[in-house]
Computed example of a mutant assay.
Amino acid sequence: MGVPVREAGSPGGRPGSLLLDEQLCFALYAAQRAVTAAYRPLLEELGLTYPQYLVMLVLWERGETTVKELTGSLRLDYGTVSPLLKRLETAGLLRRERSARDERTVLVAPTGRGEALRERAESVPEALLAATGVDGDEVARLREELWRLADRAEGAAARGR
């Protein structure tokens, strides 16, 4: 796809420009779609979609967690996460159960099959880097900048409410 790439040191566009290629939101959208597409063949081998992979990453990192903590970690709402959990549970990769201490709380944890999938998934990050030609230092820099942008945008959204 012919997405323009700005040369280092070139101006970032005019303030207030309505040109599509000068919109930060569009560059982020295009990058997100392209990265997700690059993940697709890697995750198909695991039988996961990209959102399901994100759920499993949280569970592999934390083990048993609440649905509330999971939605917070993924920055998604319950209505988005609930169908993902249902499909992963049907696939035998996680279990959901009500907490014995508080029936309003639903606990989620990987099953033995879900834990076994982790071993196969360990090759995914490196395979993505190889497929995209991005090195570890560049990934670290991009990730840091994107988290900083996410924090600023969340702050702006909160102030706009």
Rank of each mutant, 00 (worst) to 15 (best):
R104A: 14
R113P: 09
R104Y: 02
G92S: 15
G63L: 08
T80I: 09
G114L: 03
R104L: 11
R104K: 14
V106H: 05
R95Q: 12
E97Y: 08
Y78N: 11
R96G: 02
L94Q: 05
V124L: 09
E103M: 12
L84T: 01
T71A: 11
A127P: 15
A121N: 13
R101V: 03
G63F: 00
A127R: 15
E97C: 06
P83T: 03
E122C: 07
R96P: 04
S99D: 12
V81I: 11
V108W: 06
G79A: 00
L70C: 11
G133I: 12
V106M: 01
G112E: 14
Y78L: 08
S99H: 07
S99Y: 00
R95A: 14
G92P: 13
L88G: 06
M56V: 11
T105V: 15
L85A: 00
M56T: 13
T132I: 15
E97M: 08
E89K: 07
R118E: 10
V106G: 05
E61M: 08
A109W: 00
L107Y: 02
S82Q: 09
L74T: 07
L59N: 08
E97I: 02
A100L: 10
A91E: 05
E97W: 06
A100N: 04
V106E: 04
A130K: 15
K86I: 11
L76N: 00
E69P: 05
E97S: 12
V124A: 13
R104T: 12
L94T: 10
S123W: 04
G92Q: 13
L128H: 13
L128E: 14
L84R: 01
A130G: 14
L85G: 04
L85E: 01
T111I: 13
K68V: 10
L57P: 05
A109G: 06
R98C: 06
T90I: 01
R98L: 10
S73K: 14
V108C: 05
G114M: 09
R101E: 13
L70A: 11
V106S: 02
E126F: 13
R101Y: 06
L117H: 05
R113Q: 15
L94F: 02
T90D: 08
L129N: 12
G92F: 10
E89W: 01
R96I: 00
G112L: 03
A121Y: 12
V106N: 01
R98S: 05
P110G: 06
L88M: 08
A127N: 12
T111R: 06
L129P: 12
L128V: 14
S99K: 00
W60V: 09
Y78G: 11
P83S: 01
D102M: 02
